[in-house]
Structure formats: C-alpha cells, structure tokens
Write a protein that binds this DNA or RNA. Structure first.
Lengths: 329, 329
DNA sequence: ACGGTTCGGTTAATCGTTTCACCAATTTGC
DNA sequence: GCAAATTGGTGAAACGATTAACCGAACCGT
C-alpha cells in the first residue's frame, strides 16, 4: 500500500501539502494540486483509515444500532443509511443489540473504542447510560422516537398518529364498531404511541375497543388475535406491526374466519412482504428508506457542524389499502 | 477517554507492560497483572481502535460483502456472522454491492483503506479484480460457491444438489411428470448449480422439464410462472429461490389455478417468510445461520494463522415439506 | 562459584496521518 | 516604495497503541 509519503515524494511536495489537497482544507496552487492528484492516482493511493482516525481523533465510521437486523423492518433502513453514508465518504457499522441490556452495554464500549463520530439508535428503548455516555463526550447521536432533541442529539419523530387515524377512519367508514389492537411491548415508546393513537381514533369514532399487548412477533400476533376473536368478537383488528398482522392472518385462517369477509386486518410498517400475503395486507406504511436516509443526514449535519444543536425531524405515515379490509359483517 | 499511558501511570508500570497484559501476549507477574487490570477498570479504559490498528498494521474490523441486505436471504447470515465476530472480539462491517460493478470497485478501495484483516464475499459473482487485489496483498478471504480454495482463500460450498434432488424426488413420488424450473440469473454461480441439479434429478426421474431463467425477484417469479403455466402446462414448478416461488404462488392465484391442488410449488432458501405464505411454502432450506457463522470462523482461522491455507467447507441443504406440494392432478 | 537461561520489566522506534507554527515570496494598501 | 497582509508551501509534533531490543536480577546446572 502506498503511503502519503510516497505520494509526496512522487509529486515533489511535502506530506502536509498532500494532506491538504486530499482533504481540501487549505488552498493550494492548482498546478500543485494536479501534480499531487496525479501522483496519488498513479500510486493507487488510499488514505490509511486508522492513521487518519488516530491523527484526527475520530474515525469516519458512523454507527447504526438496531435491535435486530433479522427483523424485516430494519434491513431497508440500514441500506438507506449506508448508502447515504457512502455518498458522503463515510463508512457505517451496524450493531445488533438483540434488545439485550448486556449487549447494549457492550455497544457503548465498542462505540468509544472505535471513536465513532456519531451514532444512530433505531432501537425502541435505549439505555439511559448509553445516552449519558455519549452526551458526556458530546458525541452526536440521533434517536428514533425518543423525546425532544438535546444538545448534540437529534430525534426522528415518526407521526404514527396520522397513519393510525387514517386506518381507524378507514375501518369506521367500512362500518366496523368493535375493533381490537394487537399492541407492541408495553415498554416500547413506538408501541405506546401507536396504542395511544389507536385509542384516540377509536374513541373519536365511538368504537368499542380491546387491546392486547404483545411482542411484535408473528406468533405473538397469532395468539393475541385468538384472544381478540374469542372473548371480544372483534370485526377488525389492527396490529402494531406487520409481523403480528401476519400472525393474525394465520390465526384467522386456522379458525376458518374469512379475511376480509368476517374479519378485517390492518398491519403497521408496510414491510415488503406485506404486499405478498394472501390476501395482500392493508397496512400503515412507515417510510423506512426516508428514515434511514434522514438518520444519516441528521447525524452527518451534527457531525459536520460542531455548533449545531440537535433538532427534531418529522416523517409521516400513511395508510395503504390492499385486500385485508372490507365492510363489517 | 483514558489512554494506555494513564493506565500505566495509575498502575505504576510502563505502557508496554499494560499492552502486554491487555493482549496477553507475554507473561507478566500475576500481581502486576492485577494492578494493571484494576487500573484499567478504574479508568474505564478501552483501547483506541485506530491506534491499535495503525500500530499493528491491520484493523480488527472484518468485512462482509453482500449483494443486497434488503434481500431477506442476507440479514440472518449477517446477524450470525456479526455475532460470531463479536464473540471473537472483532467488529464487522457490512457492505452492499447492489450487484453493481461500480460499487464493487469502490468496495475494494474501502477494504484496503480500512486495512481489514479479511473479508467474506457472499455475493454470487465477484469481480476478478477484487479477488486479485486481495490475493496480491494476501488478505484472507472467503467466498460462497466460488470454485476451489486458493492460497489464503477459503470457500463455502453449499450442497444445493442434495436439497434439489430431494425436492425432485418428492415431486416424483407425488406423481409429477412435467415440472418447470424458474431459474436464477444465467451468470450466477449458485443459480447455475441449482439448475444443473434440477436437470440431473429430473432426467433421472424421467421427467419432462422446462426451465426459464429469471432474476431472483418476486415479479420475475410471477412472470416466469405464467410462461410455465401457459406454454408448458407444468404440474409442478420449483423456483431457484423463495422470492420467485412467492411470485409463482401469486401468479397461480391470479390465474385461479389452485396450489397445491393443480400446481405444486417448491421454493429454495427457506427464508423466514416461507412459513407464512398461504399456503405455507415447501422449500429447500439452506442453513443461513450456519453459513454466516462458518463464513466468520473460516475467515478467522485464516486470519489467526498466517500459514494456514484456505480450504473448502461444505454445508448441506434439505427439503422442508410444507403445504404447497401435493399429488399431481 | 560462574557462565548461561529465564523472568519481568522498561525504553524507544514505529505505524500513516493531521494540523499547528513558521517561513519565504508575492501582492496589497497607502 | 515600504510595511502589512496574503499566498503557497514546509517541518515536525502530536495521536495512542504495538513490539523489537535491551537490561538487571534471580535461578539454573555442573
């Protein structure tokens, strides 16, 4: 691997000059600049990331922390995030917490060890300790649905309410009066916001409701739906995510209640598989690629400008009607 | 952030000693070791990754290159890979090529810049230039389904043949005589291997066959299935991956040909959604978490032992029968 | 009791950049 | 035309680890 020194030699300048043109952080004479660039090309030179990080005191690898990359909600966000990072000349590293506190603790060590210039947490619950550790060192961070912005922390606020209200309105227009919610874990912020919006919308429409807290998994959705169908006799259920909606679909199928004939089902997220369920799932879309891109961009702007204060970015959600909703029986 | 120097001071030893105990690469007196460890703990010390990489000439971040993390085949592999890396105290960075040659070229630059100690390519086609670039610098690599092992390169060979033959045997026993294959892209190694096995099995069973090359996507599967149903009148189709199988399922549904009553469908991969299609997809499982884990482990052993030559690791596949297969009409 | 090992530790060079401080040669202002 | 400012460049000190070379003390075997 060619080093900056060799480039300097070949271009007949000092290493400082090479560094200046490569990062273009100081004016250099156009002619000199050309020489340097040519030399770099000729030697197939790439800056040594480690050396650069060491000297600069920070690496150019930003971190993206997700609870579970295996959950279909995250790969697309990840992809968008990484793509945005790459066009900005940064690398990104994704870390899984598995929603495990122990792992979460190790995450912070790894972030510090790597000297990341910033991190995006797309997990629904983040340890207070993690937030503090980053804040104390004033490392920029962005969180998803996590209260207001702080000094160096931005927040991406997803407007779950809008989509949820649209969903309920849709159900109301179809004549549903008894609807159930298969909710997310009681300790997740996003799950709570969805539940609240559900309750609000249903109340406004004068509907009878029942909510079962579940766990965002397919089996969870399956069993919760069973409860809703049994005790409550709902004509429609909305699930706080698509995975649970899929569980509900299967539950309905197994109990031979036709969807959407006897039961309407609405999911949440619009994961890519939602369009391929049978029948295709009506769901509230949350703009995952926008979230991914925004997560990086907001982080990047915090990183790039050390005086910039964190702010809140809003993204919308919207109902996409497919085939699992129909007039109430 | 505490540095090694501060730890040394607090422990009353030299930085070298601290380094030795932390990496335990040289014996030190147990008593001294304790002092160092305590000091490190007290100062909440974590080694600076950049400095370490620079000094050692290689980072501890291994790379995992995938064509598209959005494709449900890859997140689980990724997760397994990362988990394995983490328990070995390594970080991993995943890069998307999007099967785009331009991006692929940038991947190699980034790998070199990061000074990765090794890289795993799980893409079906890798640029010759990439392989050469790594080989020239003798950076360990592992590939998926890519010919024999080389000097510092290992290979994970998935035995697609076994699963495919099982699938065809299954079909044969159900009385199918005219079966179609929805194949992958003609330039992909894995796709070709699957096709060959299909042809072999069908020939052995004396079946009539027809293969349509497609592109591993849901719509691709949809249209290919239409062709198979139209011109060829197959009683069963096997798809080279689950996404296309799902497309086929929808095509059948839209044309009102009942599955599995009038058409049996077999997928390939056993992505997690395969169990949630309606009806649940019969498919050939490829052991993704095993592949992920193995990819890291094989890489790791190459990295850890600089004399070790690359070798081939085999993983099997097997048919999992669900509900999309039934006796021929 | 003495030369050779082993033990447990230190010193200092090194990795490849960034960036501050400085400098000479121009250009500018008046 | 001369001091001051600007331009375009260099030298060298960090950054925080790893690791080769060295060194004194204790421990051998004979």
């Amino acid at each position: 691997m060619a080093t900056i020194k060799e480039v300097a030699q070949k271009a007949g300048v000092s290493v400082a000059t090479v560094s200046y043109v490569l990062n273009d952080v100081r004016k250099v004479r156009p002619e000199t600049e050309q020489r340097v660039l040519l030399a770099a090309k000729a030697l197939a030179y790439f800056p040594n990331h480690a050396a650069r990080s060491l000297a600069a005191g920070r690496s150019s690898i930003v971190a993206l922390i997700v609870p579970d990359i295996g959950n279909p909600f995250f790969p697309e966000i990840t992809k968008a995030f990484q793509e945005a990072a790459n066009v900005s000349g940064m690398e990104s590293i994704v870390m899984n917490t598995n929603s495990d506190p122990r792992r979460t603790r190790s995450v912070i060590e790894r972030l510090l060890s790597l000297q990341v210039p910033g991190a995006a947490f797309l997990t629904s619950q983040v340890d207070r300790a993690v937030k503090d550790a980053l804040a104390k060192r004033s490392i920029p961070a962005v969180y998803l649905d996590h209260g207001g912005p702080g000094g160096r922390i931005s927040n991406i606020a997803v407007d779950y309410r809008k989509g949820m209200l649209e969903a309920i309105d849709h159900l109301a227009q179809l004549g549903h009066r008894r609807i159930g919610l298969i909710g997310g874990p009681a300790d997740g912020a996003a799950a709570q916001r969805r539940k609240l919006a559900f309750l609000e919308g249903a109340a406004a429409a004068g509907m009878e409701t029942r909510v079962i807290d579940s766990d965002f998994s397919v089996p969870g959705g399956y069993f919760s739906c069973a409860k809703l169908l049994g005790g409550f006799d709902a004509t429609a259920v909305v699930a706080a995510n698509d995975l649970m909606a899929i569980g509900a679909l299967h539950c309905a199928y197994d109990r031979q209640v036709p969807v959407p004939g006897a039961l309407s089902v609405i999911g949440f997220d619009d994961i890519s598989f939602a369009q391929f369920t049978q029948p295709a799932l009506t769901t509230v879309a949350v703009p995952r690629v926008e979230i991914g891109r925004l997560a990086f961009q907001s982080l990047s702007s915090l990183i790039g400008n050390s005086h910039e204060a964190g702010r809140t970015y809003e993204v919308g959600t919207e109902l996409v009607v497919r085939q699992t909703t129909a007039p109430a029986r």
